[in-house]
Computed example of a mutant assay.
Amino acid sequence: MASDDTLAQALADVSEQRAALEAEYERISMELTKLRQAEAALRAIVENTPLSQAQIPSLPGLGTEGGRGSRRGSRGPRANSAKGRLRQLLQEAGPQGLTPAQIMRALPDASPATVNAYLSAMTGGGELRRVDDFYVFTRGPDSGASENAASDSSDASDDE
Rank of each mutant, 00 (worst) to 15 (best):
Q9I: 13
L11M: 12
A12T: 10
D13N: 14
E16A: 14
Q17S: 13
R18M: 10
R18G: 04
R18D: 12
A19L: 04
A20L: 14
L21N: 05
E22H: 10
E22W: 08
E22S: 10
A23V: 09
A23E: 15
E24K: 11
E24A: 15
Y25N: 12
E26D: 11
E26T: 06
I28A: 15
S29Y: 03
E31D: 15
E31C: 13
L32C: 12
L32K: 10
L32A: 14
T33Q: 01
T33H: 01
T33A: 01
K34A: 11
L35W: 07
A38Y: 05
A40S: 02
A41F: 05
A41E: 14
A41N: 08
L42H: 04
R43P: 00
R43F: 07
A44S: 08
A44H: 04
V46P: 00
E47K: 13
N48K: 15
N48V: 15
P50I: 13
A54Q: 08
A54N: 08
A54P: 06
I56D: 02
P57A: 12
P57E: 06
P57W: 03
P57D: 04
P57R: 05
S58L: 07
L59Q: 06
L62K: 11
L62D: 09
G66M: 02
G67V: 06
G69P: 03
S70D: 03
S74P: 09
G76F: 05
P77C: 08
R78S: 15
A79Q: 12
N80F: 01
N80S: 13
S81V: 12
A82E: 04
A82H: 06
A82D: 07
K83S: 10
G84D: 11
G84K: 05
R85N: 05
L86E: 02
R87D: 13
R87C: 11
R87A: 12
Q88W: 04
L90G: 05
L90W: 04
Q91V: 11
E92T: 02
E92L: 01
E92Y: 00
A93S: 11
A93G: 08
G94Y: 00
G97I: 00
T99R: 11
P100V: 06
A101D: 09
Q102H: 00
M104A: 13
M104Q: 12
M104W: 01
R105A: 02
A106R: 00
L107I: 02
P108W: 03
D109A: 15
A110L: 07
A110Y: 03
P112N: 08
P112D: 12
A113P: 00
A113H: 13
T114H: 11
V115G: 03
A117W: 05
A117S: 15
Y118Q: 06
L119M: 09
A121N: 10
M122E: 01
